[in-house]
């Protein structure tokens, strides 16, 4: 039983690290700032959450502290992603030519 939980925990660690890798790959491959934020910050958040869950399986005594780190990440990461995206948009960051529509720029121009 203990061994089974250990192996599940180890697999969660590997899965989480794999998501970290996907996130970084997205960060590198995506064509503009907004898509980089999308791929980078959020996929890595899930990766870290899975790693924390894996660590909780391996060391149940650390559960509370790991949960605290997880809750903290869930609340702070989207905020920093939003603030960064907002900053990029205000600074007029270049958007990829693939972009289909930008309602925010339309509305900003309408008010100005």
């Amino acid at each position: 039983m203990g061994l089974l939980i250990d192996i599940i925990g180890g697999l969660l660690l590997v899965g989480g690290a794999a998501f970290l890798l996907f996130g970084s790959l997205g960060l590198l491959r995506m064509p503009d700032v907004f898509n980089r934020i999308q791929a980078g910050t959020k996929t890595t958040t899930l990766g870290t959450l899975l790693t924390l869950a894996g660590a909780a399986c391996l060391q149940p005594a650390w559960g509370w502290k790991l949960l605290l780190i997880g809750v903290f990440l869930i609340f702070t990461n989207p905020v920093s992603a939003q603030v960064l995206a907002n900053t990029a948009h205000r600074r007029g960051a270049q958007k990829t030519p693939l972009t289909k529509i930008d309602r925010l720029a339309e509305d900003r121009e309408g008010k100005a």
Binding site: F34, K42, I74, N77, P78, A81, N86
Partner: peptide, 10 residues
């Protein structure tokens, strides 16, 4: 924001 693919900008 946390679900990838969508991101609140403003």
């Amino acid at each position: 924001t946390l679900t990838p693919g969508t991101l609140t900008v403003e």
